[in-house]
Design a protein around this nucleic acid. Sequence first.
DNA 1: ATTTACCCTG
DNA 2: CAGGGTAAAT
Length: 749
Amino acid sequence: MPDCHSTSPLAVESEQRRFDSGIPNPFDECISKQSAAPTIYPMNLSISDQDAEGSSPCYFEGDQTSRLHMRLKRNLFEGSATSYTNRAIISQFWKKTTKKNSPVDHSLFFSSSNVSSSTTESSQEDRSSNSSKDSVQDLSLPPSEAHATSSVEGDRFFDEHLRAKRARVENIIRGMSSSPTVAIPSNELEKDGSHQQGGLRDQYKENKRKQRLPQQQQQQQQQHPKNLIASSFKKHRREECHRLKQQLQEMQGKLLELQEKFFQVYDTNELEQEEEEDLPDANFPLDGTACKAENDEDAQGKFAHDLSDVDHSLYIDYVQALTQDRELTSGKDTTRHQNTDRKFNSNNHFSFSLVEGRHLADALKYELSNAVAHIVDSVVQLFSVKPSSSSQSFHPFPPSRPKDAVQSDSTNLRMPSQELRCPQEPTIHQYFENPQTFDIQDQTEALPLVVRKSSQPSLVNPVIKPPCQIGHTSTALAIALGSQLPLNDLPVPVMSYGMHADIGHNLSSSAKDPASPESIDLSWETVKLRSKIAPHHMTQQPYSRFHQGPVDSLCLTHIKAECGDLHSLETDSSRVNYLSVSLTTLYIQEGLTPNHLKKAKLMFFYTRYPSSNTLKTYFPDVKFNRCITSQLIKWFSNFREFYYIQMEKSARQAMADGITDTNDLKVTRDCELFRALNMHYNKANDFQIPDTFLEVAEVTLREFFNAVYLGKDTDPAWKKGIYKVICKLDTKVPEVFKSQGCLQEAIID
DNA sequence: ATTTACCCTG
DNA sequence: CAGGGTAAAT
């Protein structure tokens, strides 16, 4: 398969592209996703794709809180990375608390929200047939009564304020509930007698509503008097659902206007944002009652998407602000709390009482500490395990993940269940699945490659037990421990691949086909991209810590170059994430090893210009990516460099020796040139250099001799022609090199 | 604009 | 052997 020198680069590139396109690389897939949506989140707090999937049914059979939960989690993906940790934790907390006592949490988060309180009522009605009257009454209770368990000091300071605020909000709610266009199927709200033709409603109907509502809605409003709507809705609930939603939109619009009026103190900037949210919001909470009552799945699915994203972020911001407030003021500074409450009340449909906020803050702190403790325990457990011990003791991941990785291996890399998995894992599991095809020396030698350069692995005498005698995970652990590297110095560069692949690809996993061709070749661009991300985003990137490690150990030149500016990005905030990810990296440890280098050198006897495809064929145990490929190509480039230098030197020596006829130039196993080459490519002298290589060397030597003899060396590009000739002399590498035991077998030759 | 190869240095 | 600069190729 020799090809001329001039076309070799092209061939290499084209072959590589073909390979990349033909073989789906999970890593590349993840990279592409990541590049499309760079938000990151820690492994241990990662959210499954199912959770992120907006159409996941599990969130539609639940109550509004479940939907909100989903929306919150989705916001975690879509939001900025700056606060993802907190948000993820909050999401966890949310899930946990809503499972335990969702009704309470309803009121916890929504009790004082005019919008969501109706939702709460409806949810409770659906479940327990409680009258809305009772619910409203609950809402009317002061915080101290509504949450009798609260013992937080300083509640009294806010009772008056909160009571007044709640009273006003409830008044508005009642007014809204009694509106003729309210699409509440049940009569509870009407029965409770609390509905009034509120002056506020009329006021806004006259002043603002017509300006804000779409034309279509105004027409509908005129076409359907309140009684007609109520009756027709009862008779034809499903048929009227669409119209109902429009009416609910209208209600929502009025509600927003009421909020604006009610909290008119607040700036106009965020009001604009609210107006943008007008339409999506319109379908949400109030109509949740109607839709749930009529059991309209379509509407439910729509509603699940209609909770404004701003609500989530604002909610989280509110939680953060509330927590901060509490820590700063210890419940004494009422002004700050009031400001916080009012701010979020005005711009958000969420609302908290102080007591509720404190409950939430406490719960969040508890969950945070638990999460940290769990991670620390996992790490301690991991690194207290001895290499020879069982692997069962180390399972930083959900139990299904490694199993899944093993099962799927590299055969079906597009399985949705794998999208969250680090794409490097299959390789490790490949390793474990076929230990005989891997040389454990590869792994043990990989890390000290730079640390102790002098060590030369013996091809004939493998020292280390085959990995099949060692637990799988503990083998990986042994690799890490055997390297005698501190945790911080675990080999990094390849890991950063896995990490940044993990980091963001989930965000767009549903949006981008992982197998799409354009998503394959983006891995390296992603590395570059991430290296240029603003520091405040990088601070939470778990792999930033790794870059102080022995980067050279895995010889990933480009990563070293590209990510060099990440050295200064270590932050304590990444510690937890770093720990969790470092566990992952034990699995995805890979790279070119000294044995790979030795093998490449032996391959050089057959091919001087191997294509990337050839390299991939003959290094089946290497998880190829751009960096690995570049490294291998660079190796051969270095081989060629040395080779041609030796040739030129020998040719000049021959000319200095008075040789005039190229036929007198011979390359034998006894000559100086051969010894130099053998020393370089076959230092252990345990490989029988093929005769074809001697012939190639002889041709090369003659080419150099002729060039020098003819004085072509004055031309700066005088070697090009020689390269062109030599590249055609590549011969096929023996098949034995494809197998893992190739070194031993080849040596026997 | 990106990739690749060559060349040089350490 | 890796890193970096440069130029050529795509």
